[in-house]
Design a protein around this nucleic acid. Sequence first.
RNA 1: GCCCCCGUAGCUCAGCUGGACAGAGCAACGGACUUCUAAUCCGUAGGCCGGAGGUUCGAGUCCUCCCGGGGGUGCCA
Length: 558
Amino acid sequence: MARATRDLVGELVRNALELAQADGALPPIQPIELRIERPKERDHGDYACNVALRLASSVRRPPMEVAEVISERIMRSAPIADVSVAPPGFINIALDPEWQRTQLLSVIEAGDQWGRIDLGAGRRVQVEFVSANPTGPLQVGNGRGAVLGDALAAVLDAAGYQVEREYYVNDAGAQIRLFGRTLNARYQQQFGREAAMPDGGYQGAYMIDLASQIKDEVNDRWLDDSGDPPAELSDRGLALMIEQIRADLALLRVEFDHWQRESALYDGDASTYSIAMQQLRDGGMVVEKDGAVWFRADELGDDKDNVLIRSSGEPTYFASDVAYHYDKFLLRGFDTVIDVWGADHQGHVARTKAAVSAVGGDGDALEVLLYQLVHLRRGDARVRMSKRTGEIVTLRELIEEVGADAARFFMLQRSADAQMDFDLEAAASADPRQNPANYVRYAHARCASVLRAADEAGLAPSSDRLDLLQEPQEAELVSEILRLPELVADMAAKREPHHITQYAQSLAQAFTQFYDHCRIVVAEEPQRSSARLTLTQASQAGLASALRLIGVEAPDAM
RNA sequence: GCCCCCGUAGCUCAGCUGGACAGAGCAACGGACUUCUAAUCCGUAGGCCGGAGGUUCGAGUCCUCCCGGGGGUGCCA
């Protein structure tokens, strides 16, 4: 378990600040949050701190002077080699190159787990994502939620949280009944009967496939003239549909720890649902109006009340959600729950947080990560996602066209907030210039290839003379490799896993530049070769770690 | 109407909870292969960060208004 270098540096700066106050060079001040940044400009060192600028007005001294006072008191010992002050008041910090090179050994030891930190301290986080209705196959948009949620879970796991990935299966309610009636119609049609599709029934051909499959399994055993579909038929269809969804997600390399059934919330006399509803009633959070039961969400931050139980007596989807979040927080005791939703559910955020508070949880412990729509393109041509035009619609079709690696990498290149254009042509291309997933994969494969070539030449990695790594490309590569732990910290804290793709490209580029400028395997220079092989091993570990977080394979040859 | 997201290079997008001259990839142009994978690398060009005010020592980043794109606003999910 590594500590991010940034944290080590931050500690030394904080010590210097406290020392300055202790010896009277600075007046006592309110403790402030120290932020250590990576300057954009290489000349400004490895890290920079703006604490002097932020302190200047409260201590009534010029920023440059404050910076000097702090800078003088920063220990010039590993990992720090040099500290300088630059206008208007930045403290610039250069790391000790020798110390950095030594860190490569930890990287190699960590392998594809490099970057792991202890920010989360084992706190339990649930990430619930996809959770699409099991009334049809997953669509392309569900793929974005799948990749986003899975990568976020991976990042949180790397940051030291105890993470559970969950899929919520809406297997109750009106939609499921409609699913059953549709399937029943299709099933009867399998036997040449004239069965009308229900109003608003599911038109997709997949329903015919389901009916056909069930006919193969049980023949005419579930034919029923009463009008309502036999429960066995509906249940079997649902099971097949859920299995298909699970298989589609597995193709994307997304797997869940737990599939939570909505129907299970209603099981038994003391069901989760009834307990949660009682909780709301006891708290005076419900009101009856027009024969329906409403949640008084406006008292807890939402802008309007919401129906929990229809006048027909049937609970709404929202009522299930209340029970579900009661289950998450009060029964299962997660410290934090992150729901990953499509942006079209944006209107449900306030009421769901309010519901968490109303059932005795902490509304702020529920975080909702919204992601925007995905549009498909082929080069310059917009791909219309509609069943009528026969164009690509389902997640499975997308994966079959571009592969899981490209699908995951591309889906993760944008922030969740931004609408996304997904270029099928680029994603399907093997060319690394079109397809950055391949650029990174290729860099990893090249590491493996170089290590094989070295082995054949009788050269082995060694840390004896890492001081021979003096080229600028080597220093840059070392720095880039060592950056991962703090990136993990940032991604985890901000719930923004998409930065990992940019990092992976940047690391791959640093390695490729090193490879291009520095001959690694040179029999006549065994010591330098061995040092460079160590750097190659660490690069491979770094690339493998980044690719693992993205969920893309790290091949040894391409 | 009200609420949420977005508007940064020709294109697709980053920009670290305000910081040092605005970045990447692709596309464009010019170079580099007797070499461990050229599936690569080096260089050039390209921007009033949608517009107008404001806060600040400092704004792509925060506030207000306007323009443009998307989503939401059901006893649907």
